[in-house]
Nucleic acid binder design. Structure first.
Lengths: 295, 295, 295
DNA sequence: ATAGGTTTTGTCAAGCTTTTGTACAT
DNA sequence: ATGTACAAAAGCTTGACAAAACCTAT
C-alpha cells in the first residue's frame, strides 16, 4: 500500500473543497493528517488522506463536533473491517439453509450476524442481496416456489421481530404500504427497519392495500411521509390517479423495482431508487434539513 | 408489581372521560381512589385506578346509585381478579389498541397474557377469537381495511416470533400451506404453534402455494402430516384434483372455514374442523396411538 | 464498543426535536441524562442518550407528567437506541438493570432480545454468560447476596415463563433434576428450554432432589434421558452409589461444573460438558440416530 | 362550580467560556 | 509554512418567569 504522498495542499483543497487553512488547522488540532514532506518542506498527501478528509466532512455534515468528527475519521479500518469474510460466508450459509428448509441454521446465521454487525449492515450486505438474488433465481426457474415461500416467510418473521415496537415513539411518522395485488413487502419492511433505526415511528399496512384506505389513513394520521412500494410498474400504473390524489394528502414517495422517475413525476411523488438503508438515511437528512430551514 | 402512581388527575380524567372535579368528589365521598401524592401534593394515580374508575362507570351505566357503584368498584378485588377478567379485559384492550394503531399497547397486552397464561390459552381465548371477530367486522364493513391490515401484520409478526425455531427438533414433522390465491394464513400459523407446543417440527410454506410445489416437497420431506388451510371452498375446489394427488404423497388434512367433510372425502384427506388447538391435540394423540399400534 | 459520547447538545436537540434548554432542564431536574464532558465542559451525548430522550417524549405523548415520564425513561430505557451491536449492548443494559434492581428495564431488555434473536442465542450469548459472570462476581465479593438473589429469581421466573407447557407433547421425554443440597438450577432450566426447543417433553424436578425420588420417577416415567446437574463435585460424589443405581433405570447424563469424566464413568453415565444449547443439540442428534439405527 | 393559592414545567435572559473556521504577520 | 490572533457560533450556569395544571375550601 504505502501509497507515497504526491498531492500538495492546494490540490487536496481543490479535491475536497476544504480551504487550505482549514486543512492545516485540522492537522494541527486533531492530527487528522500526517503528510510526508518535500525536500523544501511542502506537505505531500496520499489518496488515503483524501478519503480521511472526506470522512471528516461526512461526519461534520452529520452534525458531529469537529473534534469528534476527526476522532472518527481516524478510526479507519472502521466498523466492518474484517466483516467481509463473515458476510461472504454468511450469505452462502443462508442460501444453503434455505435450500434445505433448515430453519435452525438460518436462525443461527442471522443471530451471528446481528450479534457482530449493525442492523443496517446486516440488511444491506446480507438480507437485501439475498432477497434480490432469490427473486432472480425464481425468475430463472432455479429456485422452487416452496423454497421462495419458505425463505420469504422466514425473513418476514425475523424482520417483524426486529421491528417490535416500531409503532411507538415521538419521532417523525412514516406510513408504509404496498398497492393492490402487490405481495412483495420484504423490501418495504427492511426500509421500515432502517427508518426506525433513525428514530422514525412506523405504521405498517403491508401487502395489497387499497388506495382509498391508504388515503383515508394518510389524512387521519398525518404522517410525515407515506411510502408505497411495488415490484412491477403495473401495480402502480393501475391506480395512478389514486396515487396522485394520495400525494395531496401527505408527502409521498414511491419505491421498489416497479417505481420509476416517470411514474413518480406523474403522481406528484418523490422517487426512492436506492437501497432501503441509503434512502432511509436520505429521507431522515431531508426531514432534518427541512425542520431547520423552517426555523 | 406495586406499579407506583404516575398519572396526574388531568390524564386520568382524559383516559376515563370523567371530569376532574368528579374524580375528586368520588375520592372524597366514597373513597373510590387513594392516590399517592407528589412532593408538592399532586395526586398520582396508578393503572389500577384507571380500572377502578372504569368499573365505577360501568356500574353507574348499569343503573346503580353512585354510592353503591363505588362500593362495588372497590369490592372487585381490583386489577385482574381471576383469569376470566384478565381475558375479557385483554380482548377489549387489544381491540382498542388496534383501532388506534397503537402497536405498543398491543404488544403490552400480549406480553402480559403470555406471561400469565399458556400459549394454548392465549391462542384459543384471545388471538383466535379476535381474528374471527375482525373478519366479521370487516365483512360487515365495521372495520377499515387499514385496521385489518395493521392488525394482521402485527399478529403475524408476533406469531412468527413465537414460532421461531419451530423447524427444528426431533418430533413428528408437519408441512403447512395455503392453496393458490389464499392469503389468510393466520389461523394456520396458530395451528403450527399449537403443534409446535406438542413437540412437532414445522415446515411452513404459507400463503398462495401452488399444489405442484406442495406435492413435490411432500414427497421429498416425507412429513408425518400435511395440512392445507383455506378460508373459502373455492380455493380448494379449484385444485381438488391436485389435492387428491397430494393425499397420495403424504397423510393430508384440510382445515379452515373453506374446508368441509365433502371436500375432504373427495380429496382423500382428513378434516380438521375444530379450533387449531384442539385439532393439534387430536392430531398429536392420533399420531401417538398410531405409533403405538405399529409397535 | 463503549460508544463514547460524541453529540453536542445542539445536535441532540436537532435529532430529537427537543429544545436545548429543555434538555438541560430534564438533566438537572430529573437526571434524565448524564453526559460526558469535553475538556472545556461541553456536554457530549451518546446514541443511548438519543434513545432515552425519545423514550421520554413517548411517555410525555402518552400523557404522563414529565417527572414520571423521566422516571420511566430511566427505568425501561428507550425503544431502539441506535444500531450498534445488539448483543453487546443488551448485556450491558441487563447488568445495569440488575445492578439497580430495575425489574421493568430487565424485562424490556429480554423482550427486545427474544423478539430479535432466537432463544438459543439469547441463552448462550446473554443469559448464561450473565449468570456465569454473576457467580464469579459473587465469589469475588463484588456482588451482594441481595443482587445475586434478585437476578437469580428474575431469571428463573422468566425462564420458567418461557418453558410454560414444556411437560406436554409428543417428542422424546427428559427428566431433569439437581442432587441433594444443590441450589443452582438456572443452567439446568436453560438446558430444559434448549431441549424443549428441539421438540422434547420436559419433566422438571429442580433443586435439591433426593436420589430415591429421582430413581422412582425414572422407573415410572421411563424418560428417554435423565439429566442430573451439579455445581460442585461433592454434591455428586456424596450420592455416587445412588446415581449409579439410577443409571440402571434410565439413560443418564451428568452436567454442570461439578460433573467430570471420572464421575460419569464411575456412575455409568454420559457427561455433558458443553454449554446447554450445544449439549441439547447433541442429545437430540444422538436420539435421532439411535431411533434410525433401531429401524 | 368558583375563588384564591401552589406546584410543575417549558422557556428565556444575562454574563461568561469553549470551539472552530478564517485571517494575518513573520 | 508556521504561529498567533480573532470573531462568530455554540455552550455553560444561575436565576427568574409565566402558563398550565392542580390544590383546598367554600
Amino acid at each position: 500500500m504505502a501509497e507515497a504522498g504526491h498531492l500538495r495542499i492546494g490540490e487536496l483543497s481543490r479535491r475536497t473543497g476544504t480551504s487550505v487553512d482549514l486543512l492545516r488547522a485540522w492537522e494541527k488540532r486533531y492530527g487528522l493528517l500526517d503528510p510526508d514532506r518535500s525536500d523544501g518542506g511542502f506537505r505531500l498527501y496520499s489518496d488515503e488522506d483524501v478519503g480521511r478528509v472526506r470522512a471528516m466532512q461526512a461526519h461534520l455534515a452529520d452534525g458531529l463536533a469537529a473534534a469528534e468528527a476527526a476522532r472518527r475519521a481516524l478510526e479507519i479500518g472502521g466498523p466492518e473491517a474484517g466483516g467481509g469474510n463473515l458476510i461472504e460466508q454468511s450469505r452462502r450459509e443462508l442460501a444453503d439453509a434455505f435450500a434445505g428448509f433448515a430453519e435452525g441454521r438460518a436462525n443461527a446465521v442471522l443471530d451471528r450476524l446481528l450479534g457482530a454487525l449493525s442492523l443496517d449492515t446486516v440488511l444491506v450486505e446480507v438480507v437485501l442481496p439475498y432477497l434480490h438474488e432469490l427473486g432472480e433465481a425464481w425468475a430463472r426457474g432455479d429456485a422452487s416456489v416452496a423454497q421462495e415461500h419458505f425463505a420469504s416467510n422466514f425473513v418476514r418473521g425475523r424482520l417483524f421481530g426486529l421491528g417490535r415496537g416500531w409503532g411507538e415513539g415521538a419521532g417523525p411518522h412514516a406510513l408504509l404500504a404496498c398497492p393492490p395485488r402487490e405481495q412483495h413487502d420484504l423490501g418495504l419492511i427492511a426500509f421500515g427497519l432502517a427508518l426506525r433505526n433513525r428514530g422514525w415511528r412506523i405504521t405498517y399496512l403491508g401487502q395489497d392495500t387499497p388506495l382509498s384506505t391508504l388515503e383515508q389513513e394518510a389524512r387521519e394520521l398525518q404522517p410525515d411521509r407515506v411510502v408505497v412500494a411495488a415490484s412491477t410498474p403495473e401495480r402502480l400504473e393501475d391506480v395512478l390517479a389514486d396515487i396522485a390524489k394520495l400525494a395531496q394528502a401527505a408527502p409521498l414517495s414511491l419505491a421498489g423495482v416497479g417505481a420509476s422517475p416517470e411514474l413518480a413525476a406523474k403522481a406528484g411523488a418523490t422517487l426512492l431508487e436506492g437501497d432501503p438503508v441509503s434512502e432511509a438515511e436520505r429521507l431522515t437528512r431531508e426531514l432534518r434539513a427541512g425542520a431547520r430551514s423552517r426555523t
